[in-house]
Every structure is written in structure tokens, then in C-alpha cells.
Write a protein that binds this DNA or RNA. Structure first.
Lengths: 233, 233
DNA sequence: AGTTACGATAGAACAGCGTTCGATGAGATG
DNA sequence: CATCTCATCGAACGCTGTTCTATCGTAACT
């Protein structure tokens, strides 16, 4: 991954980047410590160059985020294209959505920027198309198809937002692990008045130690079931 | 809304705030120009006081955001409590979700912070309970109820993220209105290769000038239909 | 009434952020 | 060898959240 460098010139060296290396290192920063870790200064240091150089490749931080996001969505798209096509379009929709969600679980920062700007995120648009193409196999009108894909993307994003929140400092330090953190939260819920919060008490054990993937899967199933009903299949 | 002030003392006056006034003015700033407009300096100026004074009421900006959010969720909750209870729990779920979504449409910044921290957002927790209580009337187990409410909140949040994105500068200036902006976007889609993007072409007319509320409603209907199926009612 | 104690306010400073400017490097082209 | 253009970079600007320290005003206590 090392870029070509100039020959020695009195101690100081000049860095030589490329769009690829900028995005790769940006994604690496995001992966390692989340969105707040991606700063122009941190990125420049990683690239062994100056801050202003990055602006030659990218016009703003928003654009950097969009391009970095699209960069990894490209790999997700590749995974999706490897999926074996099935008989049932709804099964295929599920497979695509799950693949996307898995990627967001691995990279929680992804959820926040994904699908922000389809002009700069051409891979996101392709992914949108991938989902939509399955709806073409269902007996729906154009509006229903549009809404169906929006709904599925909405479920993914809605679940992703949950995951994407920066965890509090104590959990990043490793002082407290996720289960304990959830457990504490659950305990404060258990202390609530059962008469005033019957539902919270009903589900607090489910919340305690719950799995985000299960939560997403269930939400997705509900939407897909509704869609199947709508398509009359 | 004027707070008591000290008697004259050589020209300079001291401002006197209250938790209420801090949150009210914070919400006003968010309403007027979105999340980026809420800065401690802007807020202090509005309150006629110093920057550091705000820290007496609030420990950090995150806490300010949480409390401001919960402040308006309180009014949403009041609206929800005014809703007439119906025979069908699913109809009631829809009514609650729509009321919440309407509030987010009016205050697009709300979506991003809503339900971030139920410790500081007690009204969000109450709203969560309100939704959940309807699921107690359905024939589901605890886990299904937990997932059902998560799914509905997910649909709301997922749609809210769409709305919540800061529009580009040109639309804030009023130089370009929303329909024209959507139209431009649609045009770039129409320019895509129809063979490569059949779905995008199928729905581009639906996208052009689409209504966010319709989009949300449809997604919600799919989830509710799935839920009704699951509850066997 | 004078003093003390404390709730509340505020100015100034700090570190970090995205962004811009102007100068300067290196490599290819003539 | 001169020129030109692409690419790089240090330094500065204005903004942000946050902290430090000093101070004011009121209420309570002797």
C-alpha cells in the first residue's frame, strides 16, 4: 500500500497519494475508532502528508464521507452479486437486505452515511437497483415497488441507527462490556413503577442481552410479510 | 418568558435563566435553522448571557440535545394521549406512529436525536411504553412484542433519517424549491442506461415529486400488515 | 446590620475541527 | 535547459465545545 516517494532531498520527504489510498485510509480510521476519529489531520498523518493535500482529491469532508462510504458499499455490492438467485423474489430481497445489514454491523459508522447522496454514491444507487429489480418480479404497480424498496431500506437504516450510535466512553475503554451496559440499562427499567410501565416490564428481559441482528431480522420479516400479502403471492 | 434581572449596576446586567428557558430557546434555534444552528454561543446570545452559564444547567452538548429533544417529545406525547382509544390495537399503533412522524416532519432535526438515551429522555421512554401497551392487546409473546415495537420505531426512524438530512445550501437559500431539487435528481436518474437500471427507470416518476408522508405511511402499512398476520387477528 | 455562604453568572482562554491561501516541490514536455 | 502543470504542504483563519477562575446577588445566620 506504500505509494511511490520522491528520492531523498535533504531530510524532508513528500508524500504521494492517490484517490484509492485516501479512501482506504479514511475507511481504516472509521473502522478503527468510528466517525469522530476521521479528521483531516489524522488522515493526513496516516498518509504521511499534509492536511491540505487531501483537498486535492476531495472537496469537503462531506464528499470524503460520501466517497468512503461508497467505497465500501462497493464491496457489499460485490457480496450481493455473489448471492445465488432464488425462485422467490422476496427471499432474494431478504438475502440482499441481510447482506447489507451484516456489513453495517461490522462497520457501524456505515449506517449514518449510506444513501445520503446517490450522485456521489453510485454503488448505493446500484444497490438500490438490485433491491428494486426483485420487486419487478412481484405483481405490484410502480408506486408500490417504489414504496416497497423504500420500506426495506428504511428498515435497514432504522436498525442501523440503533447500532451506529457511538457507545459511551466506558464501553470503548473496555471497562464495561456491551452485555453489562445493556444489563445496567435493563436494571433502571426494572426499577420503574410496574403499574405505569407494564410494557417495559414485559419486555425488559428480552431487551437485556438482546441481539441487534435478531431485532433487525424480525423487523424485516414483518415488512416482507406485509409485502408478500400486498403482492398477493 | 422574560426572566428576572438584577437592578441596574453600572451598565452591565446579569442574565437569569432557568432550565425551561434554556430548552425553549435551544428548541427555537433548532426549529429555525436546524442542528448546525444550535451552538453554545448562539444560544447564550439568545439568552442574553454568557456561554459558560449554560453549563450550569447542562453538562455537555449531548445532554443539551437529549433534554431539548425530550422537551418536545413531551408535547408529542401529550398529542398522543389525546388520541381516542380504538377497538383495534393495530389502528392505535398506526395512530401513534403517525402522530410521532408528523412531529418529525415539522421538526426534521428531531429524528436524529429521538430515542438516543432513554435515561435522559424520559418522555421517549413513555412514548415507547405507549406503543408497547398496544402490543399487550395482541396475541404475541414478550419477544414478539419487543420486536414489534422496535420494528415500528425503526420504520419511523428510518423514514425520519431521509427527512432529517440537511438540504443543500441552494434549497435553504430558497433559490431552488424542493420539487425542483427532486426533479433535477430524477433527471439524472432518467439519464441512466435503462438496460442497466430498469428498476430506477420504473420508479423515477414516482420518485419525482414524491411525498415523504406517503412513503412513510406505506412502509408503516407493510409492517403493520405483517404484525397483524403474526398476531393471527 | 454585618457577615458569611452559596447558587448562579460570565469573560477569557484552550485545544481541536474543517477549510483556505500562497508558496514550493517534482516530473514531464518542449 | 527552461517551462508548465500537477501535486504537495505549512501556516493561518474562524468556528466549535469545553474549562478555569473570578465575580455578582441573594438569602440565611449571628
Amino acid at each position: 500500500m506504500a505509494q511511490q516517494r520522491s528520492r531523498t532531498d535533504g531530510g524532508r520527504r513528500r508524500a504521494s497519494h492517490s484517490m484509492e489510498s485516501v479512501l482506504t485510509e479514511a475507511v481504516a480510521l472509521l473502522d478503527e475508532a468510528g466517525a469522530p476519529a476521521l479528521t483531516f489531520r489524522a488522515l493526513a498523518q496516516r498518509l504521511g502528508g499534509g492536511v491540505a493535500s487531501i483537498y486535492w482529491y476531495v472537496g469537503s469532508k462531506d464528499e470524503l464521507l460520501d466517497r468512503a462510504t461508497d467505497h465500501v458499499v462497493g464491496t457489499v455490492l460485490a457480496d450481493i452479486e455473489k448471492l445465488p438467485p432464488g425462485d422467490d423474489p422476496i427471499d432474494d430481497l431478504r438475502a440482499i437486505a441481510v447482506t447489507l445489514f451484516d456489513a453495517i454491523v461490522e462497520r457501524p459508522w456505515l449506517g449514518a452515511y449510506f444513501m445520503r447522496n446517490t450522485e456521489l454514491q453510485s454503488n448505493s444507487l446500484r444497490l438500490y437497483e438490485k433491491l428494486g429489480r426483485q420487486t419487478l418480479r412481484l405483481e405490484l404497480d410502480a408506486r408500490q415497488r417504489f414504496h416497497a424498496v423504500s420500506a426495506i431500506v428504511g428498515v435497514v437504516v432504522g436498525s442501523a441507527v440503533d447500532i451506529g450510535q457511538e457507545p459511551p466512553q466506558e464501553i470503548l475503554d473496555g471497562a464495561v462490556d456491551r452485555d453489562e451496559y445493556l444489563g445496567r440499562f435493563a436494571d433502571t427499567w426494572r426499577d420503574l413503577d410496574p403499574a405505569e410501565f407494564p410494557f417495559v416490564h414485559e419486555i425488559v428481559d428480552e431487551f437485556d442481552g438482546h441481539d441487534d441482528v435478531d431485532q433487525f431480522r424480525s423487523a424485516l420479516e414483518l415488512t416482507l410479510a406485509g409485502l408478500r400479502l400486498q403482492a398477493g403471492a
